[in-house]
Nucleic acid binder design. Structure first.
Lengths: 346, 346
DNA sequence: ATGAAAGCGCTAACAT
DNA sequence: ATGTTAGCGCTTTCAT
C-alpha cells in the first residue's frame, strides 16, 4: 500500500494541509517545516496521487497526442519532441492512432476527453467545420493544420517546396512532376501552393500525378506514370512516396539522379538511408511536437480563449541536398566536353 | 461543466447508486430503469469521471508501454498492436521513450507508477536483478526479454535465425558474418544462440563483427569490416543495421546479392522499401504488442502472482526471402556454363 | 504559518 | 431492485 498524505502528515507531526502545501505552494509554509515534511515524504516514498489531485483541481496532468498513423515516421519526431517536453513539465503523454480516419479520430477525442487536459491533433483528418467546434472542451492544439481561432504549429511546407523547386530550376530542370498527396490534405495544399509559386518565378513547367496515399506503395505505382511524362525531375508529396519511386526506378534500371532527379518531403530518417540518399525538405518534427506541447500547456493556464498570435507557431522547413538530385541528363552531357559533339548532333 | 453522476440521477429520478450500477453492473438493475438511466446519460453527455472512479477502485484504466527508442520502427508495430488491443478493452495507453537508458527507464517506471495499472516493458535495458524486483507494484509484462517469474512475450529470434542461416547454407554459402548487436542485449544473445546452433548443423563458418549499436550508421560502418573477412553473406543484428550495410555497399559498388548476400532481422517496413529489398526475419511485432496487453489485462484481474505458464507467450519468427540473398558468386558462376572454364583456373 | 473540515465524482458496503 | 452513506486521497476555503 503506497503512502498517503495522511501517513506523511502523521509521521511529520503536521496536518495534511501542511503536507499538501509543502508540495503545491512551498512559499506558504515555513522553510523548516517544509524541509521535514519533504524528508518524511521521501523516506516513505510518498507521491501525491494524481487521480485524487485531479478530482479537485480538475486537471489530470495528462495530455493526448493523436496522430493519423503511428507507422508514419514523420510522427515519431513529433512524438519524441512532445514526449520529452511534456515530461519535463511533469505531464504524461497519451498517444493514439487515428488510422487515417476522421471517425476514428473523433472517437479517440471523445475517449481521451476526460483523461487529459488537452490534446495535440496532428495532421487532423477532421473537416474544418468540426475542428472549429472542438474547443473549449478539450483544449486542443493543431499540428500541420490551420483553422481560424485554433492554436496551431505549422511547418512552412510552402517555403520548403519553393526551395526544392528552386533547387531543381537552378540545376537546369525545366519540366518537373509532382506526385500529389491526398487532395483534401492541408499539407498537400500547402506544398502545391509553394510549388506553383516557385514554378511561376522559375519558369518551371509542372505536371501533377495523383493524388495518392502518402505511402511507399503509392510511390512504387507512381514511378512509371512519372516516367511517361518525360520530366527530368520529380517532387514527391513525402519521403515515403519518394522512396517508393526510387525503389521502382531501380527495378526499371532508371538511374537516379542521372536520368531522373527525385526530391522527397519531411526528411524522415529513411531519407538518409536509401541509395542514393534522398534530397528532401526537412521538417523540424521534434521541434514541432515540442512547440505544440508548449502552446498547449500555456493555454491550459489561461481560461479558454481564442488563439492569440502567440498561439500560432510557424516553423521553417529547409532543403537538404543529398544524392538524388543532379542536373538533367542533357545538361550533364553538355557539361562533359567529350560528349559535346554528340549533343549537337542530337 | 460536464454532467456528473448526480445530474443523471436527478434527471432520471433515481439514486446515484443506480446510475453507477447501470454502468458497472448492468445485470443488477432492472432493464427498464437501466434503459432510462442510459438515455438520460446520453442526453446529458455524461461519462463517468475516470479519476473519481480510480480513486475508489484503485484502477486507473490506463496502461503504460515503455520502449527503448520511439524512433525504432520495430516498436511501432508493437505500439500499434498494444494500442488497438488496449483500446478495445477500454484502456488508454501511455507511451514513453526510455532513450536506450536504464536510468531513464527507471525514472519512467516511477513516473508512470501511480497513473497506470500496469506496464509493458519492451526490450528493457534494466538488469535482470532489477526486473525481478519490479513486481508486484506495478504489474509488468516483459516484451522480448525473459526473467524468471515475470510474464513475457518473446519472439523466437533463435528460431528465426536458424531459418536465416539455413537459407544461406542451402544457397551454398559456407562462410558468413554476423554483425552483432549490443552485447548485453537479450535479443542479441538469442539471435547469436540460434546462429551458433544453425552453424553447427549446417557446417557454416561464422565470423562475428561488432558489437554495434542497433542503428543504420552502425551498418554503414560495419560494411567494410565485413567485406575484409571475405565472407559471401552477412547476417545483421537487425534491419536498420542491414540497411546501413546495404547503403555502404552501394557506395562501394559491391553488388548485392551477386557479390554479397545480406539478411536483416525484424522485417520492419523499411526492409521492403530498400533496393534490393531485404531478406529478413519477420517478427510479428503487432501481435507481440497485442499479446503483451492481453497478458497484462488478464493479470490485472488476478491478485499479484508469479507468472504462470500461460503468461509466457512465444511467437514464431519467419524468414521472408527477398532480393538481397542469392547463391555465392563462385557458385552462381559455376552454374553459368560459359564461365565454368574460368572458374577452374581460379 | 498552520489546522479543521468540506467536498471533488465516484463506487461499494449496507440497508431497505 | 434500489437508496443511503461512507469514504478513496487530495486541495482549498475558512479559522485560528
Amino acid at each position: 500500500m503506497p503512502a498517503t498524505i495522511h501517513d506523511v502528515a502523521a509521521r511529520a507531526g503536521v496536518s495534511v494541509a501542511t503536507v499538501s502545501r509543502s508540495f503545491t505552494a512551498p512559499q506558504t509554509v515555513r522553510e523548516s517545516t517544509r524541509a521535514s515534511v519533504l524528508a518524511v515524504a521521501t523516506a516513505l516514498g510518498y507521491q501525491p496521487n494524481r487521480a485524487a489531485r485531479g478530482l479537485i483541481t480538475g486537471r489530470t496532468g495528462n495530455v493526448g497526442v493523436i496522430v493519423p498513423d503511428l507507422g508514419n515516421p514523420y510522427f515519431h519526431g513529433v512524438l519524441e519532441g512532445a514526449q520529452s517536453w511534456a515530461r519535463a513539465a511533469d505531464y504524461a503523454v497519451f498517444v493514439a492512432d487515428g488510422q487515417e480516419s476522421a471517425a476514428e479520430e473523433e472517437a479517440l477525442i471523445a475517449a481521451m476527453g476526460k483523461q487529459v487536459d488537452g490534446i495535440v491533433l496532428c495532421s487532423s483528418r477532421l473537416p474544418p467545420a468540426r475542428l472549429a467546434t472542438l474547443e473549449p472542451e478539450p483544449t486542443v492544439v493543431l499540428l500541420n493544420r490551420r483553422v481560424p481561432g485554433l492554436p496551431a504549429v505549422v511547418i512552412d511546407s510552402a517555403g520548403g517546396m519553393r526551395q526544392a523547386a528552386g533547387h531543381l530550376a537552378q540545376l537546369g530542370h525545366t519540366r518537373v512532376a509532382f506526385v500529389s498527396g491526398p487532395r483534401h490534405s492541408w499539407s498537400n495544399q500547402q506544398r502545391l501552393r509553394g510549388l506553383r509559386a516557385a514554378a511561376r518565378s522559375h519558369d518551371l513547367e509542372v505536371v501533377t500525378i495523383g493524388p495518392v496515399q502518402p505511402q511507399f506503395d503509392s510511390g512504387v505505382q507512381a514511378a512509371e506514370p512519372v516516367l511517361r511524362t518525360g520530366v527530368t525531375a520529380v517532387l514527391a508529396y513525402n519521403d515515403l512516396v519518394a522512396v517508393g519511386i526510387l525503389s521502382r526506378l531501380a527495378e526499371l534500371d532508371v538511374a537516379v539522379p542521372a536520368q531522373l532527379s527525385v526530391i522527397g518531403f519531411d526528411d524522415i530518417p529513411l531519407a538518409a538511408m536509401v541509395t542514393p540518399a534522398l534530397t528532401s525538405v526537412s521538417a523540424p518534427t521534434a521541434l514541432a511536437g515540442k512547440a505544440a506541447i508548449d502552446i498547449l500547456l500555456t493555454r491550459l493556464g489561461r481560461p479558454a480563449s481564442p488563439a492569440r498570435a502567440h498561439d500560432i507557431r510557424r516553423l521553417p522547413a529547409t532543403l537538404v541536398r543529398r544524392g538524388s538530385t543532379a542536373p538533367p541528363a542533357a545538361l550533364a552531357s553538355a557539361a562533359a566536353p567529350v560528349r559535346a559533339g554528340t549533343l549537337n548532333r542530337a
